[in-house]
């Protein structure tokens, strides 16, 4: 099967800091992959490159076989890639439902269609669907800027999902959220993803979440892919345990 995302020899450095060193990754369509690594291992940089926010120094990224290096984040989004952010990127003075309506309207904001009236009723109906899918009905009329962090994370993801993407990148979907809410968020998101056969890559620090929700796990260390395998294999790997999870080496 052709991978949904394929990177070859991806390189990126910021001055003396190497954020990506020969990264070769294949992500199969419809799979859910966890991405783990210490702070500064290059996880966010990787997502930023995949979504066109940063341009790699060299190497190739293909989306369903099409080269996307050099495209802007806007163009990549239009090809069916969506992302959420470590710090949710919301419209703080809009309510949740208005934010989703706006996100839905974005699909039309191109060329002459952008000057056509949007159908308020249709936008609202679809926004309500999204709210329900992510369990946000109760916050429909709250301003995004006033929502608690866990809800902000979910809204950020729901906004990303408004374009019905094929590939979704989640940058730390549960960071800054109370432990008991983490699973609730992931349950929602993964259910929605499985429902539509979405390809997902998520960055995560909580190994329990990684184990529970991933089909595959990529471990990054100092800009390199340390290991790329099934969750059990990766999480029991000695290097991963010492370098990333931070356990004392092997006298267990």
């Amino acid at each position: 099967m052709e991978p949904a995302i394929r990177t070859r020899n991806l390189m990126k450095s910021f001055g003396a800091v190497v954020a990506a060193r020969d990264v070769n990754v294949d992500i199969l369509p419809g799979t859910i992959s966890g991405l783990i690594g210490t702070n500064g291992a290059g996880k966010t940089t990787f997502i930023n490159m995949l979504t066109g926010y940063l341009r790699p120094d060299s190497g190739s990224i293909t989306l369903d076989g099409t080269e996307i290096v050099g495209l802007t984040s806007r163009e990549i989004t239009r090809l069916g890639v969506a992302r959420s952010f470590q710090i949710p990127q919301l419209f703080n003075t809009l309510s949740a439902i208005e934010s989703l309506e706006l996100a839905l309207a974005a699909q039309q904001a191109r060329g002459l269609r952008g000057f056509a009236l949007v159908s308020e009723d249709e936008l609202e109906a679809r926004a309500v669907e999204l709210l329900k899918e992510f369990g946000l009905e109760g916050f429909a009329n709250s301003l995004a800027g006033t929502l608690p962090e866990g809800i902000r994370k979910l809204l950020d993801i729901a906004i990303a999902m408004a374009r019905s993407p094929r590939v979704l990148f989640l940058d730390e979907p549960t960071s800054g959220v109370a432990a008991e809410e983490k699973f609730a968020i992931m349950d929602r998101v993964i259910a929605a993803a499985r429902h539509t056969g979405l390809t997902v890559l998520f960055v995560e620090h909580d190994m329990e979440i990684v184990r529970r929700y991933s089909d595959r796990v990529l471990a990054f260390f100092e800009g390199r892919v340390l290991i790329d395998d099934k969750p059990d294999v990766v999480l029991s790997d000695t290097q991963v345990r010492t370098l990333i999870i931070g356990e004392e080496p092997a006298h267990a």
């Binding site: 806007r74 809009l94 706006l102 996100a103």
Partner: peptide, 30 residues
């Protein structure tokens, strides 16, 4: 009328969060 078109709607998003607007596939500069 303009404020009820897709561009008009997106304009308010632009004020709030330009990065998000670009990541919704709309052109902030446009």
């Amino acid at each position: 009328v303009y404020s009820r078109t897709a561009f008009g709607r997106l304009a308010e998003g632009l004020k709030e969060n330009e990065i998000r607007v670009e990541y919704l596939g709309a052109s902030a500069d446009l």
